[in-house]
Computed example of a mutant assay.
Amino acid sequence: MSDIALEALKRKRAEITGEIARCHATLAKLSADLEHLDGTLRLFAPDFVAESVLPKVFTPPKSWSKRGEMSRAVLSILRVAKGPQSTREIALQIVAQRGLEGDPGIVSIMTRRVGGVLRDKRDAGLVRSLEETGLWLQWEIVR
């Protein structure tokens, strides 16, 4: 094996073992914090059973996006559009693409997210808004 590859593998191993050490330290701190919290709870409720409180697990909402996913979806919709599109029209297309239910709550959340992406992209000079179109801003890609 070449020296360059060997050094790269050693460097990667060092990164991984460092991350494992950080995770162990975080786990130890969380365990100590939990013990202290359980002790405090027992002061106020001596018959408290810690296992009766179930862990709270984070579950992202259905409309959740990974980093950059919303921007890519919005820009791809604008690229293939025949003309300017409103924020709501783009949001409805994204809801349909993802197979989400078109209930007003999801559409409202998606419209706000699309609006945020469009404002950021307007500031970056990638899209422009046509403001004389009435209630909803119309958006198009800058060509």
Score class of each variant (00 low, 15 high):
Lys12Ile: 04
Lys12Asp: 09
Lys12Glu: 13
Arg13Ala: 12
Arg13Pro: 04
Ala14Glu: 12
Ile16Asp: 05
Ile16Lys: 06
Thr17His: 10
Gly18Ser: 11
Gly18Glu: 04
Glu19Gln: 11
Ile20Pro: 01
Ala21His: 03
Ala21Tyr: 00
Ala21Cys: 05
Ala21Val: 07
Ala21Ser: 09
Arg22Tyr: 07
Arg22Met: 12
Cys23Thr: 13
His24Cys: 15
His24Asp: 15
Thr26Tyr: 14
Thr26Gln: 15
Ala28His: 08
Ala28Phe: 03
Lys29Gln: 14
Lys29Val: 08
Leu30Glu: 07
Leu30Phe: 05
Leu30Ser: 07
Leu30Asn: 09
Ala32Thr: 15
Ala32Lys: 13
Asp33Val: 11
Asp33Ile: 06
Glu35His: 05
Glu35Gly: 10
Glu35Phe: 06
Leu37Tyr: 11
Leu37Cys: 13
Leu37Asn: 07
Leu37Lys: 09
Asp38Gly: 05
Asp38Val: 10
Asp38Ile: 13
Asp38Gln: 13
Gly39His: 02
Thr40Ala: 13
Thr40Phe: 07
Leu41Trp: 00
Arg42Glu: 14
Arg42Gly: 06
Leu43Ser: 06
Leu43Phe: 11
Leu43Thr: 08
Phe44Arg: 10
Phe44Asn: 11
Ala45Glu: 13
Ala45Met: 09
Ala45Pro: 04
Pro46Glu: 02
Pro46Ile: 00
Pro46Phe: 01
Pro46Arg: 03
Pro46Leu: 07
Val49Ala: 12
Ala50Phe: 03
Ala50Glu: 08
Ala50Gly: 04
Glu51His: 04
Glu51Tyr: 02
Glu51Asn: 06
Ser52Thr: 13
Ser52Cys: 10
Val53Asp: 01
Val53Leu: 10
Val53Gly: 00
Leu54Ile: 03
Pro55Arg: 06
Pro55Glu: 06
Pro55Asn: 06
Pro55Phe: 04
Lys56Leu: 14
Val57Met: 13
Phe58Asn: 06
Phe58Arg: 15
Thr59Arg: 14
Thr59Lys: 12
Thr59Val: 14
Thr59Asp: 13
Pro60Phe: 10
Pro61Arg: 01
Pro61Met: 03
Pro61Ala: 03
Pro61Thr: 02
Lys62Ile: 10
Ser63Gln: 09
Ser63Ala: 11
Trp64Tyr: 14
Trp64Arg: 06
Trp64Leu: 09
Ser65Gln: 08
Ser65Met: 11
Lys66Cys: 15
Lys66Glu: 15
Lys66Ile: 12
Arg67Cys: 06
Arg67Gln: 09
Gly68Ile: 02
Glu69Tyr: 00
Glu69Gln: 01
Met70Trp: 08
Ser71Gly: 10
Ser71Ala: 14
Arg72Leu: 15
Arg72Glu: 15
Arg72Trp: 03
Ala73Gln: 12
Ala73Glu: 02
Ala73Asn: 04
Val74Asp: 00
Val74His: 00
Val74Trp: 00
Val74Phe: 00
Val74Gln: 00
